[in-house]
């Protein structure tokens, strides 16, 4: 009788996805490595643009791009030709929000702005 009840309550509560625990653990290890290699030179390497990438920069970008959708950023092309940063809601039909009020003159600058946002999230600064 008690067992049956337990079954019922199991069924009425959507079980959590335990995969998150593992992902979080992996993410902690990745962040630790990235913080150990983060430097002004690395940021400058990204600002210069896409030529050959060093391994630390490639790993930093890979981490940024693999973060959950709601932690990713994108560029909004404004009607006047400028660019701003946005973040996705991760919820269907919920429009993205602007991130900060900085406006960029070029797409390359905006993309570097996205990169700096990820660095900010990584370092907490």
């Amino acid at each position: 009788m008690v067992k049956a009840k337990a079954n019922k309550s199991d069924a009425s509560v959507p079980p959590a996805d335990k995969d998150i625990h593992v992902r979080d653990h992996f993410d902690q290890m990745t962040r630790k490595y990235l913080l150990s290699v983060l430097s002004d030179e690395l940021i400058e390497e990204h600002r210069r643009g896409p030529s050959h990438m060093s391994e630390p920069l490639a790993r930093l970008l890979a981490w940024s791009q693999r973060r959950p959708l709601a932690e990713q950023y994108a560029v909004k092309a404004e009607g006047d030709g400028s660019f701003r940063l946005i973040s996705f809601s991760g919820l269907r039909h919920r429009k993205p929000d602007y991130v900060g009020d900085e406006s960029f003159a070029t797409l390359a600058e905006a993309r570097h702005g996205v990169f700096l946002r990820h660095i900010k999230d990584l370092t907490g600064k």
Binding site: Q65, R66, Y73, A74, A77, F83
Partner: peptide
């Protein structure tokens, strides 16, 4: 983003 290697540019 992993696929394109760049943040999207939306209008």
């Amino acid at each position: 983003q992993p696929m394109t290697g760049q943040p999207p540019v939306v209008t």
